[in-house]
Amino acid sequence: MKTMKTEEIKNILTRLFNEKDALKNVDGDADIFDLGVSSLTVVELQIKAEEALQLETTTSDLMRHSTLNGWIKLYSNLSQQTAV
């Protein structure tokens, strides 16, 4: 599988986050749970992100890395591991 560059992952995740009112133009280091994002929204974002990125992680990992930058890093690492 082709490795996805961090920049591509960042663009996709930023677009998906911007589709949610509570996450529009969110600071990359802001904790999304402090912004009123529910666990259901995390699941919804995860499904959309993984369809676009063709990568899979666990919801619990995404909950632990609950910032936009945290997600970018998580999926970037996964993308590199998948390509190895």
Partner: peptide, 30 residues
């Protein structure tokens, strides 16, 4: 899973040949 995880959910529905499922409305819509 310890929480709802779409990947575990899909895999276990298939693995266990689940035929009947309950979802709360919010999860149903997602």
């Amino acid at each position: 899973g310890q929480m709802f995880d779409p990947n575990i959910f899909r895999n276990e529905i298939r693995q266990h040949n689940v035929t009947i499922l309950w979802l709360t409305a919010g999860l149903f819509h997602i």
